[in-house]
């Protein structure tokens, strides 16, 4: 179990003493963790533990105290739309699909910071292969898709920006067990093709099974960390999050 990276070259994301306030109420206080290149790191914890705030701080959507470093560079003063360009893609909670834009437009919009036209076209075709359902629906407004299809679209859209780190906020939320299996299989595939993943999940069981390492959050702070396997076996995690 390693909380700090032994090899700095492998360090992709470093969060130090992160604190976030909403309207004067502390959502996070002093959260620190690291994500290494190629890992799947998962943050688990109950509702209101501050998991979503962490992801939003990393992608620059909310102000914070503390430090967030990505591939050795401080992100504090980088605007959210620039953070995408630096290589962080974010699938937000609730998917954030633009219901008035077609599936195709949703995917195109995420390439705003890219200028490599041919590569964008190739990536678009790759997404339709990876998510065949989106191919059937590419000219439909995003709002007409089912929950599962919207989740696939949200993941595909994040991949279109070619981030090296993918932030996933509750990708299994509201999906049937079969779709949950499918989305987790996709996450593992994406990771195998070289994308680092920071996954926030309430479905702790599934998340810990695919995670290289995991952090457990409670009321805005990290209370436990370890490899996915270690935490699956930890009695505190089993009682609080796995219901066994």
């Amino acid at each position: 179990m390693s909380d700090t990276a032994d090899n700095l070259d492998d360090l992709q994301l470093e969060v130090r003493d992160l604190a976030v306030h909403y309207d004067g109420i502390r959502a996070l206080h002093g959260v620190s963790f690291t994500v290494l290149k190629g890992e799947i790191v998962t943050l688990i914890g109950a509702n209101g533990a501050g998991k979503t705030s962490i992801l939003r701080a990393v992608s620059g959507l909310i102000p914070y105290n503390g430090a967030i470093g990505f591939e050795g560079q401080d992100l504090k003063r980088v605007a959210a739309h620039q953070i995408v360009k630096r290589g962080i893609a974010h699938v937000p909670e609730g998917r954030g699909i633009f219901g008035n834009l077609t599936v195709r437009e949703n995917l195109q919009l995420a390439t705003w910071q890219r200028s490599d036209k041919d590569e964008i076209a190739a990536d678009y075709d790759r997404m339709l292969v990876l998510f065949p359902r989106l191919k059937e629906r590419q000219h439909q407004p995003g709002g007409t898709l089912s929950g599962g299809e919207q989740q696939m679209l949200a993941v595909a859209r994040a991949l279109m920006s070619r981030g090296r780190l993918l932030l996933l906020d509750e990708p299994s939320m509201g999906l049937s067990p079969r779709l949950v299996q499918e989305i987790f299989r996709v996450i593992e595939d994406i990771n195998r093709s070289g994308t680092t993943i920071l996954l926030v999940e309430q479905n702790a069981n599934m998340a810990l099974r695919i995670a290289s390492r995991a952090y457990v959050l409670e009321t805005g702070t990290v209370i436990l960390s370890g490899t996915g396997r270690e935490l699956l076996g930890d009695h505190r995690v089993r009682e609080a999050y796995l219901g066994t």
């Binding site: 992608s59 739309h81 954030g96 919009l109 890219r114 920006s161």
Partner: peptide
């Protein structure tokens, strides 16, 4: 396209870059 996305909900538009 960006204008239409913002008119839907601008919260997550920055995530598109």
């Amino acid at each position: 396209m960006a204008m239409r996305a913002i008119s839907w909900d601008k919260t997550f538009v920055p995530l598109m870059g």
